[in-house]
Amino acid sequence: MKKFALALASMLLVLSAAGAVAAVPSKTTTDVTRVKAVESTEPTMLIEVTEDAAPVVEEIEKIYQHVAVKGQAAIAYFPVETQNEIIALLPEGVKGSALTMNEFVTLTTEGTAADVKVTFTFTTRYTVDQKVVVVIGLYDGTRDANGQYNVEWVVLDAEVLESGDIAVEFPAELVERMKNAVATAMAVLND
């Protein structure tokens, strides 16, 4: 009887611990990616990382299929024109096909559109010797004939800081377009 009581008590402890673990939510994009600093002449200007919007969730799945399942280069996911803009920002000797994509997040904007420099902190720690290019996806909420969300890609240069964070300068015109988009995504490609 004593053994049975001990076994029952042990089982209850294990089950209560499992319940406690299950009650802790998993990490989300906003848990591991954040805006560290926003520098702008417009004090109300704000760009933040937020939970993924529906078009971005679909895009992430397509990128995963393209890169992880089919084994294609991350840069090849984008239209040829976007690929050419990315390659134009790469230093000599760095091939677009060698770029990896470790980040794909949803951004939101608030305030009056202005030129803004944003410093992002990611789980991935980048090094100053790495070349980093950012691709902004602007979704208008419509779908094409194949049922895919329409997205316009805008390529921006980025800088890796000593801290491993990434600084990106957003021109006011792009910020205004981000404010008017149904959703905005940011992909980070690096060598």
Score class of each variant (00 low, 15 high):
residue 119 T to H: 05
residue 47 I to A: 03
residue 33 T to Y: 13
residue 42 E to A: 12
residue 163 S to F: 05
residue 167 A to T: 07
residue 64 Y to D: 13
residue 105 V to Q: 12
residue 26 S to I: 14
residue 125 R to I: 14
residue 164 G to L: 03
residue 20 A to V: 10
residue 165 D to C: 02
residue 173 E to T: 04
residue 62 K to E: 15
residue 46 L to S: 12
residue 163 S to Q: 00
residue 141 G to W: 00
residue 60 I to R: 14
residue 146 N to W: 08
residue 104 F to K: 10
residue 83 Q to A: 00
residue 140 D to E: 05
residue 185 A to D: 09
residue 145 A to L: 09
residue 3 K to V: 08
residue 141 G to Y: 03
residue 62 K to A: 15
residue 124 T to V: 10
residue 185 A to L: 09
residue 26 S to P: 11
residue 183 A to I: 02
residue 157 D to F: 04
residue 191 D to G: 07
residue 64 Y to H: 13
residue 168 V to W: 02
residue 184 T to G: 02
residue 10 S to K: 07
residue 54 A to K: 09
residue 167 A to P: 06
residue 55 P to L: 00
residue 146 N to L: 13
residue 169 E to R: 12
residue 157 D to Q: 06
residue 51 E to I: 09
residue 176 E to R: 08
residue 116 V to F: 02
residue 74 A to Q: 02
residue 166 I to H: 01
residue 147 G to A: 03
residue 86 I to A: 04
residue 169 E to K: 15
residue 128 V to Y: 08
residue 54 A to R: 12
residue 157 D to L: 04
residue 66 H to D: 09
residue 188 V to A: 06
residue 31 D to P: 06
residue 160 V to C: 00
residue 6 L to T: 10
residue 142 T to V: 07
residue 190 N to S: 13
residue 134 V to A: 15
residue 49 V to S: 01
residue 162 E to P: 12
residue 102 N to T: 10
residue 33 T to C: 15
residue 101 M to Q: 13
residue 172 A to I: 03
